[in-house]
């Protein structure tokens, strides 16, 4: 079964969904991502969905649950590049993805994550250093 690749870039993980999501792929992604966050200690997850043309309630719920799991693992999820049609569909489905940050494109999404990363470095820098040692 094919899987969606997860890239690590600094303190962030990047997932670019380029294929039609089906339910098993979504579940596999959630699993892989969770494992990856735990392993790398990433603080931000960027999910890029500009190639995603069709969403259903399951994919919407999957996004919400990925965000929730990431939050538990202290990583922030940013969804970037949603198409207008997808946004309308999600709203009509009643899935407003509360608690997930959104960005127009990857660039802005990365900027959002960078802001959080730099805040973390300022605030809890010593904590994090010790943890990594």
């Amino acid at each position: 079964m094919d899987r969606i690749p997860i890239l690590k870039l600094g303190g962030a993980l990047i997932v670019s969904i380029q294929v039609d999501m089906h339910d098993r792929l979504a579940l596999a992604l959630e699993e892989d991502l969770t494992a990856m966050i735990a392993r790398t200690g990433a603080r931000g997850v960027l999910i890029e969905i500009s190639a995603l043309e069709i969403v259903d309630s399951f994919i919407g719920r999957m996004l919400v649950s990925i965000a929730a799991v990431s939050r538990v693992l202290d990583a922030e999820t940013v969804v970037a590049g949603m198409r207008p049609a997808v946004a309308i569909t999600l709203v009509e489905l009643g899935l407003e993805l509360t608690g997930i940050k959104t960005a127009l494109n990857v660039e802005r999404g990365m900027a959002l994550i960078q802001v959080r990363l730099s805040e973390e470095d300022d605030g809890h820098g010593s904590d994090r250093d010790r943890h990594e040692d």
Partner: peptide, 10 residues
């Protein structure tokens, strides 16, 4: 709804 959809677009 409009606001929510715009938010989803970032």
């Amino acid at each position: 709804k409009t606001v929510a959809a715009a938010r989803l677009m970032g």
